[in-house]
Design a protein around this nucleic acid. Structure first.
Lengths: 271, 271
DNA sequence: TTGCTCCTCACGTCACGTGAGGTGGC
DNA sequence: TTGCTCCTCACGTCACGTGAGGTGGC
């Protein structure tokens, strides 16, 4: 018979832990003083304690360990629990490795001159977005996009108005450029779940939910190029790869003062 | 101005999280209704929210994020925190990978026939142990060890008695066998911090603290061989390697009924 | 008799999720 | 006026660490 202070060091645990396991019914002392409440352990209980600690080292919760200790489970159940555990730990490893790459990317960015906005990149799924949009073909990325927008927007706005609906946030997205560099531009407005029909020029579409790297740009779109560059470099450094063309959400638009504009840039990513 | 219910989905967070960040002072709403307490966020605050989420994705605590957000820290401090984070995540990855190997070892053990005691293996540092011991040379591992013990023990016991001390738990350990297979056997008794001198035959030594894989054996030492075999296989499967010879702690000894004996077997390991 | 060990509460940890109970705004 | 959104507590999560305050055993 060992006191709790003698038994605990045998298993390299604290007395508090033994009391906790007692409370949970995982490891009851062999005897408990009726008057004093003093716990007395038998050396033979070290085996059970070891088993408990081994299961804990596999990452099982004390609740699960309770099941495993109590019922001497059938091999099938044990195998099932171990397989599940394996999958979970595998996932944790993958997540932590991804995290490691992200930290590394930030460290590298500190060395270089990417002081732009590197700290603000977030990975997230896009929120569901239903928009009324039209398309135009621009000769390429750059200032010419403004022209496409000014061609598209009045059409879409008029269509929304005709449907007695209200236009929400402005949204744009782009298809892969063709060989000659020209780009199909999609632009329009969020419409929520308002009822609006499509026609030849204006389509109402639900944008697919994508995993994106997102960054918020403050100021005019004229200054957006270095931000996009930094974003793409960040994605690459973090071990992701590009999985499509960008989406732009015009969160705040000031026609009189572009420097106060706020735009969210989203880049679809994978891996 | 956006309500909390409008702002939250922009960052893919819950309103509750925004309230939490408000409470901690990490992201204060741009305005708060004086009467109603309603929070109002500006779209421009999305950038700060993004920065917060990005730092959270690196694994920083909200407390650390508070520092980083508040003070626009000098590059040196930022680099330091990132390096520390890198080291910590690296360690987590290593730990989870080790855990993964352990789970895998258990799964493989289920396939094979190692039903012995595979579930009871624990990795731990040995508790500090001070013993009075003597040595003997045995022709090899096996039943001949019993002879060595019966030669050593009376000597050691007599020595302890002469020092007016009391003998604790019996302990044995082994050196690497020589080329001819003969083994130097060390055996003795725990003496705690009692004052006992060494002489030519009996030494008082502090056993070094080692990382060991430990298993508890119930029954006579005649039956210990398959347990040792399973233990060594487990160590190998778990991605560790042997780093020395075994230690045996005789936790409970019954001279009249060996089947009730309890012995802890410890194997030093590394990596 | 004095330290030492043991006992039982009970709070704190971390980042929120999840009600409970109540109120302002369209 | 009725739902809807928002508000503020406050408990629960997980595996213990860490006192506080009190008592038995050598």
């Amino acid at each position: 018979m060992l006191s709790i202070g003698e038994f605990a060091p045998l298993g390299q645990v604290s007395p508090r832990m033994l009391r906790h396991y007692d409370d949970l019914g995982l490891l009851r002392p062999e005897r408990v003083g009726a008057l004093t409440g003093y716990r007395a352990y038998g050396v033979g209980q070290l085996a059970r304690l070891h088993k408990l600690l081994a299961l804990r080292d596999l990452g099982f919760s004390l609740g699960q360990i309770g099941e495993l200790l109590r019922e001497e489970p059938p091999v099938e159940q044990l195998r099932g629990m171990l397989r599940l555990r394996y999958a979970q730990v595998e996932q944790t490893v993958a997540e932590e490795q991804a995290r490691l790459r992200r930290v590394e990317a930030h460290l590298r960015a500190l060395e270089g001159s990417d002081r732009v906005s590197i700290q603000d990149v977030v990975i997230k799924p896009t929120p569901p977005l239903r928009i009324a949009e039209a398309t135009d073909i621009a000769p390429g990325f750059g200032p010419s996009l403004g022209l496409s927008f000014s061609r598209i927007m009045p059409t879409v706005l008029a269509h929304i108005e005709r449907a007695s609906a209200t236009a929400g946030m402005m949204v744009a997205w782009y298809e892969e450029p063709s060989d000659d560099g020209s780009v199909v531009v999609h632009a329009g407005f969020e419409v929520g779940d308002q009822h609006i029909d499509s026609n030849d020029q204006v389509q109402v579409v639900e944008l697919p939910v994508l995993e994106v790297a997102s960054v918020v740009h403050h100021g005019a779109m004229d200054d957006v190029v270095p931000v996009y560059e930094a974003l793409v470099r960040w994605i690459d450094d973090s071990g992701y790869r590009l999985a499509g063309r960008s989406r732009e959400l015009y969160l705040e638009v000031h026609d009189d003062d572009f420097s106060r504009n706020i735009t969210e840039l989203q880049m679809p990513i994978a891996r």
